[in-house]
Computed example of a mutant assay.
Amino acid sequence: MKSLKVLFFGTPEFAKTSLQAIHESSHEVVGVVTVADKASGRGQKINQSAVKIFATENNLPVFQPEKLRNTDFLEEIAQLNADVFVVVAFRMMPKVLFEMPELGTFNLHASLLPDYRGAAPINYAVINGEKKTGATTFFINEKIDEGNILLQDEIEISADENAGELHDRLMEMGAKLVVKTLDGLAENSITEKAQPEVLHPKNAFKIFKEDTRINWTQDSETVRNFIRGMSPYPAAFTTVKIGEEEKVLKIYKGKVEMVSHQNSPGVLEINKNEFKIFTNDGCYFPLEVQLEGKKRMSVKDFLNGFQQYDQISQL
């Protein structure tokens, strides 16, 4: 089989796994493009992307342009003579860049396109209670996640799986799909196909802080799916009042019970053994929480930290 020369674009751990799979395949990684290093935290420590760390450890050329249209950067990339560009969890690319390689530029997206185009496909698949999702490789064009499909692979979502757990499984599956796509392009055995026209595709827009607040007026299963779809990141939250102080309470995991009650949604009941919050058709029992200013902990440890439970109320 022909070995392709690949230029890889990516940033986080999800992308690093695909880069590693390509590096260990019969194809040649001629360069890696990733985000610039940035300082963060109290000590302003310089952090490198997971993709850069792997590339450096394996002596792969690294490019970290601030602007993808930069003339010097484009000239450097052109000199690599890559057959194909592979993009995983990166930013939007200009046409002058993605049209450069002979075989084109393809992206790995963590959904079964055309559903869940956008920045948070894994989260929304769980939030919406999907029973299955998958990964898609597709040629990049000027529209976000709308290019012609190359390959797709499907995966079931278990009833109690959260977004983080699904992320890790899709990361491994997606890496294999990327290599399979490269093999197919090398052998000219893949027939690209246009994405199906869908009147109301399910979207996966970027999640902002205000999107992560729990709506207790929804039914219990919807609340449960929302919380596991936001877990562990960015984490769903509610607010509680402890004495006279308002606090954010992140909830990572819980269970539901369908019971009839007369309480308003969002009202909580708490004692030394139990913590429950009422929804419109039952109760949600948090199992893992994080109170503002505290570390993440089991609900048992959370309850052990209080003496006067009547001081805690829902806002």
Results as ranks from 00 to 15, higher is better:
residue 88 V to N: 05
residue 156 E to W: 07
residue 50 A to R: 08
residue 4 L to E: 00
residue 15 A to M: 07
residue 141 N to W: 01
residue 118 G to C: 11
residue 290 Q to I: 07
residue 13 E to C: 11
residue 221 E to T: 10
residue 157 I to Q: 02
residue 160 D to A: 13
residue 183 D to Y: 07
residue 211 D to P: 09
residue 312 I to M: 08
residue 141 N to V: 06
residue 282 G to Q: 06
residue 264 S to Q: 12
residue 239 T to K: 14
residue 219 D to E: 08
residue 224 R to K: 12
residue 123 N to D: 04
residue 83 D to H: 12
residue 2 K to T: 09
residue 284 Y to Q: 06
residue 24 E to Q: 15
residue 24 E to P: 05
residue 303 L to T: 08
residue 99 E to K: 14
residue 223 V to L: 03
residue 92 M to A: 14
residue 61 P to W: 05
residue 313 S to P: 08
residue 147 G to N: 02
residue 71 T to W: 06
residue 235 A to R: 06
residue 50 A to S: 15
residue 156 E to N: 14
residue 178 V to I: 14
residue 302 F to A: 05
residue 264 S to P: 09
residue 312 I to C: 07
residue 171 M to Q: 15
residue 282 G to M: 11
residue 19 L to D: 02
residue 120 A to W: 01
residue 216 W to R: 07
residue 142 E to A: 11
residue 7 L to F: 12
residue 164 G to H: 04
residue 4 L to W: 00
residue 227 I to H: 02
residue 220 S to I: 05
residue 119 A to E: 04
residue 13 E to P: 06
residue 165 E to T: 12
residue 177 L to S: 10
residue 100 M to R: 06
residue 29 V to K: 00
residue 114 P to N: 07
residue 141 N to S: 09
residue 220 S to V: 05
residue 301 D to T: 12
residue 245 E to A: 07
residue 216 W to K: 03
residue 303 L to A: 01
residue 239 T to H: 12
residue 235 A to I: 10
residue 147 G to M: 00
residue 6 V to G: 00
residue 38 K to S: 13
residue 89 A to C: 12
residue 309 Y to H: 06
residue 209 K to G: 05
residue 259 V to N: 09
residue 216 W to Y: 09
residue 133 T to F: 04
residue 250 K to N: 15
residue 244 E to F: 11
residue 209 K to S: 13
residue 1 M to C: 07
residue 158 S to E: 13
residue 271 N to P: 03
residue 6 V to I: 13
residue 1 M to P: 05
residue 251 I to G: 01
residue 296 R to A: 12
residue 101 P to G: 10
residue 142 E to M: 02
residue 234 P to K: 04
residue 24 E to V: 14
residue 282 G to S: 10
residue 116 Y to E: 02
residue 69 R to P: 02
residue 262 Q to L: 12
residue 239 T to N: 14
residue 258 M to Y: 12
residue 146 E to K: 03
residue 7 L to D: 01
residue 54 F to K: 00
residue 78 A to G: 10
residue 203 N to K: 14
residue 111 S to F: 11
residue 251 I to T: 04
residue 164 G to R: 02
residue 248 V to Y: 03
residue 281 D to V: 11
residue 85 F to V: 03
residue 169 R to D: 07
